[in-house]
Amino acid sequence: MIRFVLRRLLGTIPLLAAILVASFFFMRMAPGGPFDDERSLDPQVRANLEARYGLDRGLPEQLWLYVAGLSRGDLGPSFKYSGWTVREILSQALPVSLTLGMVALLLAMVTGIPLGVIGALYHRRWPDLVATGLSLFGICVPNFVLGPLLILVFVFGLHLLPLGGWGSLSQLILPAITLGAVRAAYIARLARAGTLEVVDLDFVRTARAKGLAERRVLLRHTLRLALLPVVTYLGPATASILVGSVVVEKIFAIPGLGTFFVNAALNRDYTLAMGTVLLYSTLLISLNILVDILHHLLDPRQELG
C-alpha cells in the first residue's frame, strides 16, 4: 500500500514537469501579450515593464527562472494584478473553490445516493419513477439554466436568499445546489444501477439468512459494493466540480479559482495562468490517486497498480 502510494507520487513528478513545460510554451505561443491593449504603452514604459517581469530575457532563461522560483515555492508576481503574487491570489481563491466544491459534492452525495438506492429498492414502482425522473431532470438541465432559475425563485420570487457574492452561509446555498445538481443526478443513477446489481447476490442473501435486520444488510453489505461505481465517479466529479465551476462562479459572482483561471488566460497573465494550471493539475492527480486508494479499501479484490 505504502509502496503503491509512493510509486504514484513519484510518477506525478515527470507528469507535472511535462504540464509545466507545455503550458509555459503554449502561453507564450498565444498571439498577443500581457501588455497589448487599446492604449499602447510608450516604448520606454513597455521596455521598463518587460524588464520588471523578466520578459526581456530569452524563453529558455525565463523558463529556468520560473522553475527556480517554483522550487522555492515562489510562483512569481501576477502580470495583471501588479500588487499581488500568484501565490497570494491562489491562496485567496483556492479555499473559496474548495469550500464550494466540497459542499456541492456533499450535497450531491446526500441527495443522490438515497435517491438511487430508493429507486433500486422500489424497482419499477412509483418511488423509482420519481427518483429516476428527478435524476433525469438533473442531468438534462445545464447549470447556466438551473442557476438563473433558482435565482428567479429564491432571490426575486421568495426573497429568501441573497444573490451571489461570498462571505456568508446563505450565499453558499444556491451556487452549491447549482453546481451539485448534475452530480447528484449521476450519483443517483450510479447508485441505483449498483444497488440493483448487488441486491440479489449470494452474500446479501447470506446476510439476510443469518437474520440481520434489513437496514443493516443494506448499510453494511449491499451498499458497500453497490456504491463502488459512485466512488469511481467521485474522482472525475470532484475534478469537474473544481475545474468546471467557472459558469457557476460567474452567475453567482464567486471569487473562486475558475474566475482567475479564465481571466488569466484572456489577460495573458502568464504567471497566474501557469500557477492555476499547476494547481489544478496537482489537485486532479492527487484526487485520482486518492480514488484508487479508496477503491482498494472498499473492494480489496481490486489490485493496486
Partner: peptide, 17 residues
C-alpha cells in the same frame, strides 16, 4: 464590489446588493 458579468451585476443591483 467586484464583478465582471453584466447579468450577475445587474441581478445583484436589482436584489439590493
Amino acid at each position: 464590489i467586484a464583478g465582471d458579468h453584466a447579468n450577475t451585476n445587474f441581478n445583484r443591483y436589482a436584489s439590493g446588493g
